[in-house]
Amino acid sequence: MRRSEFLRAVDAEFDGRASSLVNDLVLATLSGRTASQALDDGVPPREIWLALCAAADVPLERRHGAGRLEPRRG
């Protein structure tokens, strides 16, 4: 997952709460950092996405492949 895919996935999943969650929600699984801080620190966007999903109770079926413009080809 690229940074741009991460940002698209967050916008799609959380809509109006996206900015607040990325900038304000402290994630214990990311060493007490926000998603924004973790991105700036070089944490892989996929790891941040999964941590954010877990904290926000996003169902498993909506966590995989999110943010991609086109589905992966088999």
Rank of each mutant, 00 (worst) to 15 (best):
1 M>W: 03
1 M>A: 14
1 M>T: 05
4 S>G: 06
4 S>E: 12
4 S>K: 09
5 E>V: 02
6 F>E: 02
7 L>P: 05
7 L>Y: 13
8 R>A: 08
8 R>L: 08
9 A>K: 04
11 D>M: 10
11 D>N: 07
11 D>Y: 09
12 A>Y: 12
12 A>V: 05
13 E>R: 06
14 F>V: 03
14 F>T: 04
14 F>N: 02
14 F>R: 01
15 D>N: 08
15 D>K: 08
16 G>Y: 10
16 G>Q: 14
16 G>L: 11
17 R>Q: 15
18 A>P: 05
19 S>D: 13
19 S>V: 15
20 S>G: 14
20 S>V: 11
21 L>Y: 14
21 L>K: 09
21 L>Q: 00
22 V>G: 02
22 V>A: 02
23 N>R: 10
23 N>M: 13
24 D>K: 09
24 D>V: 08
24 D>P: 05
24 D>S: 15
26 V>F: 04
26 V>P: 00
28 A>N: 08
28 A>Y: 08
29 T>Y: 03
30 L>R: 00
30 L>K: 04
31 S>V: 05
31 S>M: 02
32 G>Q: 07
33 R>G: 03
34 T>R: 01
35 A>W: 01
37 Q>E: 07
38 A>F: 06
39 L>K: 00
40 D>T: 10
40 D>V: 01
42 G>D: 15
43 V>A: 00
44 P>C: 09
44 P>H: 10
44 P>N: 13
45 P>G: 06
46 R>N: 13
46 R>L: 14
46 R>S: 11
46 R>M: 13
47 E>W: 04
49 W>S: 00
49 W>M: 03
50 L>F: 13
51 A>S: 13
52 L>A: 05
52 L>E: 04
53 C>Q: 01
53 C>K: 02
53 C>T: 05
53 C>E: 08
53 C>P: 10
54 A>Q: 14
54 A>S: 15
54 A>M: 09
55 A>W: 06
55 A>P: 10
56 A>I: 14
56 A>H: 03
57 D>A: 10
57 D>H: 15
58 V>M: 09
59 P>G: 14
59 P>N: 10
60 L>A: 15
61 E>S: 13
61 E>C: 04
61 E>Y: 14
61 E>N: 11
62 R>H: 09
62 R>I: 00
62 R>G: 04
62 R>F: 09
63 R>G: 00
63 R>N: 08
64 H>S: 14
64 H>P: 03
65 G>L: 06
65 G>V: 12
65 G>Y: 03
65 G>H: 09
66 A>M: 07
67 G>E: 05
68 R>E: 13
68 R>N: 10
69 L>R: 13
70 E>N: 06
71 P>Q: 11
71 P>K: 01
71 P>V: 15
72 R>L: 13
72 R>P: 08
72 R>W: 09
74 G>L: 14
